[in-house]
């Protein structure tokens, strides 16, 4: 059976096209669904294995980034999304989508509880920036999206990427359970240790991504869908043209996981 992916669009989401492309490249059937249609027909989720909230500026990031969309999903889709997760299905949030998942409280999803434990807020620099970063995957993460990946480079394009956790108890749990799925590092792999531009936002503990304890719900600030192609890399004209972009592996992992566990 074919893996089916539902990519959310509408109201200022703007990376849906390349996110669609990413899952299609990874071998999934992809449908882009407008938020209005999904709110009207939540059963659309039933036919999908993977649900994605792409990057963009949902509702202009007014009030705070991702907040209004997060509230819409929480008020109107919490039950269907919880059921979606309970069936062992996958959820991805990229950039603004990660902000949405975090603020609606479905990440980190401790003990299956929808509750906001972290937030993403204005970068330390106070400005939106587009730059490439180095990322490392902590060994203990259960994140199925990052299976077999230890490090890669991706672009960030964010004004509110600084992750802050609720308190030290949450922080300890995130680290202990491997829910910190990606960390910003220096080009040589040493921790960014909060230093700009290696950690581009000032995110606490260099956290660039989180997953839930099952490893199936995943949110990240960098854009893997912006590196499907070797030519997307800023140095490809000096390093040589790779056959594919490093971001693609992540989507392939998810589609492969869904194929073996859900189809």
């Amino acid at each position: 059976m074919t893996v089916k992916t539902l990519v959310l669009t509408g109201f200022g989401i703007n990376c849906d096209q390349e996110t669609h492309q990413a899952f299609a490249c990874a071998g999934s059937d992809v449908t882009r669904v407008h938020l209005s249609d999904l709110l009207e027909t939540p059963a659309l989720l039933d036919g999908a294995h993977i649900f994605v909230v792409p990057g963009g500026f949902s509702y202009g990031d007014h009030v705070s980034s991702g907040k209004i969309l997060a509230n819409r999903l929480r008020h109107q889709l919490e039950v269907p999304l919880r059921q979606f997760v309970e069936k062992g299905k996958l959820i991805l949030g990229i950039c603004n989508g990660f902000q949405v998942l975090a603020k609606m409280g479905i990440l980190p999803f401790f003990d299956g509880t929808v509750s906001q434990e972290v937030t993403l807020t204005t970068n330390e620099s106070g400005r939106f920036e587009n730059r490439w970063v180095h990322l490392a995957v902590p060994e203990n993460t259960p994140c199925i999206w990052l299976k077999g990946i230890t490090k890669f480079e991706l672009p960030v394009r964010q004004g509110e990427g600084k992750l802050i956790v609720r308190n030290d108890a949450v922080r300890d749990r995130l680290h202990k359970e491997g829910l910190v799925a990606l960390r910003y590092v220096r080009p040589d792999g040493a921790p960014a240790a909060g230093v700009f531009p290696f950690n581009p936002s000032g995110a606490e503990d260099d956290i660039a991504a989180l997953c839930d304890p099952s490893g199936r719900i995943f949110g990240l600030m960098p854009h893997p869908e912006a590196f499907l192609d070797g030519m997307n890399h800023p140095e490809w004209t000096r390093l040589g043209l790779a056959e594919e972009g490093e971001g693609l592996a992540l989507f392939r992992n998810a589609v492969e996981f869904a194929r073996t566990s859900l189809c």
């Binding site: 990376c15 390349e18 587009n130 672009p155 869908e225």
Partner: peptide, 10 residues
Amino acid sequence: VRMFDHEVLG
């Protein structure tokens, strides 16, 4: 320039 998104659409 860095404050412009220059890679959206991939």
